[in-house]
Simulated scan of single mutants.
Amino acid sequence: MKRIAFAFAIIGTIFAVVGQYAIINDWNLFWFFHTVGFIGYILIISAAAYFSLLFIHHMSREEKIRIRNKTF
């Protein structure tokens, strides 16, 4: 799943850059590339959400282990 999220982040970045480049340079089908750029933003946000949830999960797991091993 990490590979998929990383691939989404890379592909989303490429899509977003192409979309912005098309709008700035006034390409003929800029509306299509604008849509591609929007899809790129969605992919980037999805990858960021996955990695942030993965980080929170690891932090909570370490905290549970720390609490379990704590001696009173």
Results as ranks from 00 to 15, higher is better:
65 I>Y: 04
20 Q>F: 12
23 I>Y: 10
3 R>G: 01
15 F>L: 15
65 I>W: 13
4 I>V: 08
28 N>H: 02
6 F>L: 11
1 M>G: 00
18 V>E: 06
30 F>I: 01
44 I>Y: 03
34 H>Y: 04
66 R>F: 06
69 N>M: 10
7 A>W: 07
51 F>N: 05
25 N>I: 00
70 K>L: 15
63 E>K: 14
4 I>L: 09
6 F>M: 06
72 F>T: 07
40 G>D: 02
4 I>E: 13
55 F>M: 14
47 A>W: 09
45 I>S: 10
46 S>A: 14
69 N>G: 12
33 F>C: 04
58 H>I: 07
24 I>W: 04
9 A>P: 05
31 W>Y: 09
16 A>N: 02
18 V>A: 10
58 H>M: 12
46 S>Y: 03
61 R>T: 08
29 L>R: 00
28 N>K: 12
42 I>V: 14
6 F>S: 04
6 F>V: 02
4 I>F: 08
8 F>H: 00
3 R>S: 01
1 M>Q: 11
42 I>F: 14
3 R>Y: 06
37 G>K: 11
72 F>R: 11
3 R>F: 04
38 F>K: 11
3 R>Q: 00
2 K>Y: 05
49 A>L: 09
36 V>M: 12
46 S>C: 08
52 S>D: 10
28 N>V: 00
4 I>M: 03
61 R>Q: 11
60 S>T: 04
4 I>Q: 08
36 V>G: 04
67 I>K: 15
29 L>I: 02
53 L>G: 07
40 G>M: 04
5 A>D: 00
54 L>I: 01
52 S>P: 02
4 I>A: 00
29 L>V: 03
71 T>R: 13
64 K>G: 00
64 K>P: 05
68 R>A: 12
36 V>W: 04
32 F>Y: 01
71 T>V: 13
69 N>D: 10
61 R>P: 09
